[in-house]
């Protein structure tokens, strides 16, 4: 972990209340997809933890949904502004768990799709197949579907109102995909609201699965014990031992 100032390269709207920030700065310490950064917001006490969507040695992309005052401030940053960032934080996804030549299903609910993008790139680069199962409320909320397709992912979309893709939830897309007789060799990565992750676990994803959890955090680097959850290996800090956990490690 280190603290650094990053410069805003671009800030573009992706969907209502969702935007993409590209930040320039030293990302050499980022190791794995699924790690996150903690961004200071002027005038607010706590930093805002945001997952890394993609990165290179000299820049990173963050996808952000505006939910409160901190993200509302971030939504308005412009090119050239400096952000005070702690990075990299958390463990990230373990792609070595996917069998060679196997298929990975990447299930993202809403803004939870963000860390799956760099994950998809890493999986594809290592020769695995990737299916991105992305869930939104409606067609106008859809973002990053084209980006996933452009890097070589098969993309399956669910919307709650059926205005694009399959009607229903991301869990329905995953289930539909797996009823095609392919189940048994796939590996699931998922990030999204806790009810979505719990539904996936209830649908039989009780192994070969990694979930990235989201929670309110204090420090984001393991000092305050503000985000500890119980696992089969004992207490784990979501920010430090997580945010990615194997499903069998979670006590749900």
């Amino acid at each position: 972990m280190r603290g650094a100032f990053f410069t805003v390269e671009s800030n573009r709207a992706l969907a209502p209340g969702v935007f993409e920030l590209v930040l320039a700065g030293d990302c050499s310490a980022v190791q794995r997809p699924g790690q996150f950064v903690n961004v200071a917001v002027p005038g607010l006490f706590l930093r805002r933890p945001i997952s890394i969507c993609d990165w290179t040695a000299g820049s990173m992309t963050l996808l952000v949904r505006t939910v409160g005052r901190g993200t509302a401030w971030l939504e308005k940053v412009v090119r050239g502004e400096k952000l005070d960032v702690l990075l990299p934080l958390g463990n990230g996804f373990d792609i070595s768990a996917v069998p060679d030549g196997g298929t990975a299903i990447l299930a993202g609910g809403g803004i939870g799709i963000a860390p799956l993008y760099a994950l998809a790139k890493a999986l594809l680069a290592s020769g695995r197949r990737c299916v991105a199962a992305l869930g939104f409320r409606c067609a106008s909320d859809v973002f990053y579907a084209d980006e996933f397709a452009a890097i070589g992912c098969e993309v399956a979309i669910a919307t709650e109102d059926g205005s694009r893709g399959q009607r229903g939830y991301v869990t329905d897309v995953v289930s539909a995909y797996c009823t095609h007789g392919r189940r048994g060799t796939e590996y699931l990565f998922a990030c999204g609201p806790e009810p979505m992750l719990k539904a996936l676990a209830a649908n039989g994803w009780t192994s070969s699965t990694q979930f990235s959890l989201e929670t309110r955090m204090g420090c984001g680097f393991g000092a305050c014990m503000g985000c500890t959850t119980e696992t089969t290996h004992g207490p784990a800090r979501i920010c430090h031992e997580g945010p990615v956990f194997r499903v069998e490690d979670l006590k749900w």
Binding site: F45, T215, R216, T228
Partner: peptide, 8 residues
């Protein structure tokens, strides 16, 4: 959880 909240 949650056991952290922001304040002024």
């Amino acid at each position: 959880l949650p056991r952290i909240a922001e304040t002024p």
